[in-house]
């Protein structure tokens, strides 16, 4: 297990903000550094880099490198990889942590080849001691947990959102901030424009609570009720493959093997029987509530709390009860 032992958090911004998963990386990085015996630093990008450094500092990052160039305000893997490689060299970092987002996965792949580094992708657990580092990740759509060890000097981990607690803000904490100058990288790709999803939607991957609907809703209108419960709980809206294929709701809401993998603290499955392909994406949720007319469906088997009943009779009462108790 040769290689540098310091840990570098690669904090990729999105639309001028740090995604919440970045704050979870601080916790993951401390765990990795405890295993390797190294220090933790972070790398931030773009015109808001100084602000990002402040945010990370408040949450316990001790050292932050900033690449404050407007060229990094949108994500292109080649440019980000060149800057990250320079930071890793300067910090003598042998462990790189990225959020397992679209950008994070894309960047990890580019860095892997650039730094001759192995990648443990979409990991949910970090362990190791005495310099060695290993990680756990899901395979076979959540049916298998694989323990991954590294053979390379440099080790890259992309971390699943919601697997580590976000590092809390601690009063009076600040990071030592150092500007990093990197040569402008030439890239073969560039972001030309962006169109946001519906305003006010909570992203599935970063959601602490998710309310999902399936075939049991009967029709597309059923998602009004799902959205109402989600709104009441401050939850994101999920869906099964069947209803996405039926056109009841957009693909970005799909949870499961061909959709998103989620690990919320609460997953409310409404009228979802629990096909293997759906369970693959959500079975590791901390708490699962199943509402279904079928007491023998697979979702009932894995549910923390199961309610046998019609979603149209159960959910309106759940919504009014929650509102009532909050009002009281």
């Amino acid at each position: 297990m040769a290689g540098e032992k310091n840990v570098l958090i690669v904090a990729v911004p999105q639309r001028g903000a740090l995604p919440p998963a970045v704050f979870e990386l601080i916790t993951a990085a401390k765990k990795a550094a405890a295993a390797t015996g190294g220090t933790v630093s972070a790398l931030v990008f773009g015109t808001k880099a100084a602000d990002f450094a402040k945010q990370l500092g408040e949450r316990g990052a001790e050292k932050v490198l900033t690449v404050s160039d407007a060229a990094y305000d949108s994500f292109v893997d080649e440019a980000y990889a060149a800057a990250t490689a320079a930071a890793a060299k300067q910090e003598a970092a042998g462990v790189l942590l990225l959020a397992a987002s679209v950008a994070g996965r894309s960047l990890a792949a580019r860095l892997s080849v650039l730094l001759k580094a192995g990648v443990a992708a979409e990991i949910c657990e970090i362990s190791g001691s005495g310099g060695a580092l290993s990680a756990k990740r899901y395979q076979y759509g959540g049916n298998i947990v694989a323990e991954v060890a590294f053979k390379s000097d440099v080790k890259i981990l992309t971390v699943q959102p919601m697997c580590f607690e976000a590092a809390p803000v601690e009063a009076g904490k600040a990071a030592q901030t150092t500007p990093l100058s990197v040569p402008a990288a030439s890239a073969g790709a560039q972001v030309a424009s962006f169109k946001a999803d519906e305003a006010g939607e909570i992203d599935l991957g970063a959601a602490e609570r998710i309310v999902s609907g399936g075939r049991g809703l009967g029709n597309a209108d059923g998602f009004k009720l799902i959205r109402e419960l989600a709104h009441t709980l401050g939850a994101a809206v999920g869906a099964s493959r069947a209803v996405v294929d039926a056109g009841w709701i957009a693909y970005r809401h799909q949870v499961g093997l061909t959709g998103r993998t989620v690990h919320p603290k609460l997953y409310v499955a409404c009228g979802i029987s629990g096909q293997i392909q759906h369970l693959a994406g959500m079975a590791s949720s901390a708490n699962i509530v199943a509402v279904n007319t079928d007491p023998a469906c697979p979702m009932m088997d894995i549910a923390t709390l199961g309610v046998v009943g019609d979603v149209y009779e159960v959910l309106p009462v759940v919504i009014s009860e929650i509102k009532k108790r909050r009002g009281a």
């Binding site: 192995g118 290993s134 323990e147 390379s152 079975a283």
Partner: peptide, 27 residues
């Protein structure tokens, strides 16, 4: 650059609880 040292089934979920009640509203 990596190796899978071990594969195992995911930890089984603790047994859940069925919520009983006379009506849907009770549940």
């Amino acid at each position: 650059a990596t190796s899978v040292t071990r594969q195992s089934p995911p930890p089984s979920r603790p047994a859940g609880m069925k919520i009983e009640g006379a009506t849907a509203a009770d549940k």
